[in-house]
């Protein structure tokens, strides 16, 4: 299973606090998303080269992430800088973790595995956004988008616009409903696993609180629809149980 070229959302920006980490997947491969204490986000391969432990189980200290097993610390370039069992050792430069280009846009953290020369521009969007939540589903990204298309939605802010879903580019979609605009980041976790990262394109003054709760209810209804199965194609019962 290979990853499509371009940028992929891996989390809502607000889901990763400074000094914390979380694991995720892209096309079946494991990644760690972490934010250093200065607030900068990083996406790496989720594997300590020492014993293969997931770095997402580790802990952040300043601008280093450390493995939970033996405390090996890596700097923001992915290079090992400190091995607690050998505190005086000048750590060889060959001990590194693969790191991937990471940007924040549209209220989400994005990464790409494309090499520098053929890397497309990251998703546009430096306007204000308000996070809602990320939905995880036991289906592919097309099934997820089909469910979105079939899902009725009412606006939080009334407006003249009807319902419209449009692809901004690659994995980013924009859903307009009445006076509301939602940004949808579609993440391919694996063959039959996907995530939808939902942020409101608008100001916190309008949407913080009740507006977020309004769209969270829509995500729950969408999840219910995905769990119900037939509307988006038959899936094994075990896979549906995972869709909670």
């Amino acid at each position: 299973m290979s990853l499509a070229p371009g940028w992929h959302p891996v989390a809502l920006s607000g889901s990763i606090d400074p000094g914390t980490s979380a694991g995720t997947h892209l096309a079946g491969r494991e990644y760690v998303v972490w934010r250093d204490n200065s607030g900068l986000a990083h996406v790496w391969e989720d594997r300590c080269p020492h014993r293969g432990m997931k770095l997402s189980f580790g802990f952040v200290r300043g601008d280093h992430i450390a493995c939970l097993y033996h405390g090996w610390q890596y700097d923001t370039a992915g290079r090992c800088r400190y091995i607690p069992a050998h505190p005086d050792l000048e750590v060889p430069a060959t001990i590194t973790v693969p790191v991937f280009a990471t940007v924040e846009a549209c209220g989400m953290i994005w990464t790409t595995t494309d090499a520098d020369p053929d890397r497309a521009a990251p998703p546009p969007g430096d306007g204000e956004t308000v996070p809602v939540a990320s939905l995880h589903a036991a289906c592919g990204t097309e099934g997820l988008l089909d469910a979105v298309r079939a899902m009725p939605a009412a606006p939080f802010v009334a407006g003249t616009a009807g319902w419209e879903l449009s692809q901004v580019g690659g994995t980013l979609w924009r859903l307009t409903v009445g006076g509301d605009t939602l940004l949808l980041g579609v993440q391919r976790l694996g063959d039959q696993r996907s995530a939808l990262h939902v942020a409101i394109e608008g100001s916190a003054a309008i949407y913080a609180g009740a507006g977020q709760a309004h769209w969270h209810a829509w995500i729950r209804a969408l999840r219910h629809r995905l769990g119900a199965g037939p509307a988006v194609g038959a899936r094994p019962a075990a896979a549906m149980a995972e869709a909670v």
Binding site: A208, Q212, A213, H216, A238, A241, E242, V244
Partner: peptide
Amino acid sequence: EAALRAGARRAIGAMEDAMTVNGFAG
């Protein structure tokens, strides 16, 4: 094992929803 894990996932998912909504209200 699969049923136990699915059940636990459902209960923990309910907790996630509750704290997500609580978070909207600060």
